[in-house]
Simulated assay, not measured.
Amino acid sequence: MKKIRIFSTAIFLLAALFVQYAAAQNLPLLFKQATNAEINLNEQQALDIYKKILVIAPDNLNALVKATELSCSTGERLPIANDKRITFQSALAYAQRAVATHPEAAESYYALALASAKMTEVEKDRKLLVQYVKDIKTNADKALNINPNLGMANFVEGRWHYEMNNLNWAKKLALKTMYPGGIPPTSYDSAIVYLEKCRQTQPYYVMNYLILAKSYQANNNPSKAIEVLKQLVKLPVRTPDDAALKTEGQKMLDSLE
Rank of each mutant, 00 (worst) to 15 (best):
M1S: 13
M1T: 04
K2P: 00
I4K: 15
R5Y: 14
F7I: 08
S8G: 13
S8V: 09
S8D: 08
L14C: 13
Q20V: 05
P28G: 12
K32G: 12
Q44M: 09
Q45N: 09
L47H: 01
L47P: 03
D48Y: 09
P58Q: 11
V65M: 11
A67G: 05
L70M: 03
C72D: 03
C72W: 10
T74E: 02
T74Y: 04
E76S: 07
R77E: 11
P79V: 03
A93K: 13
Y94C: 12
A111N: 14
M119D: 05
E123K: 07
D125R: 06
L128T: 08
L129A: 03
V130K: 05
V130Q: 05
Q131K: 15
K134Y: 06
A140W: 06
N145E: 15
I146M: 15
L150H: 11
G151Q: 07
G151F: 05
A153M: 09
A153I: 10
N154R: 13
F155K: 06
R159G: 01
R159S: 10
R159W: 02
R159E: 07
H161Y: 09
H161M: 02
H161C: 04
Y162A: 11
Y162C: 12
E163F: 07
N166Y: 11
N166P: 05
L167P: 00
A170C: 02
K176V: 00
M178K: 01
S190C: 00
S190L: 04
I192H: 03
L195P: 03
C198L: 02
P203G: 12
N208G: 08
I211F: 13
A213D: 01
S215C: 09
N219A: 10
N220M: 06
N220G: 01
N221A: 03
S223Q: 08
S223K: 11
A225F: 01
A225L: 02
V228I: 13
Q231V: 05
L232H: 07
V233W: 05
L235Y: 03
P236C: 04
V237F: 00
V237L: 02
T239M: 06
D241G: 02
D242N: 03
L245P: 01
T247D: 13
T247F: 11
D254S: 11
D254K: 13
L256D: 03
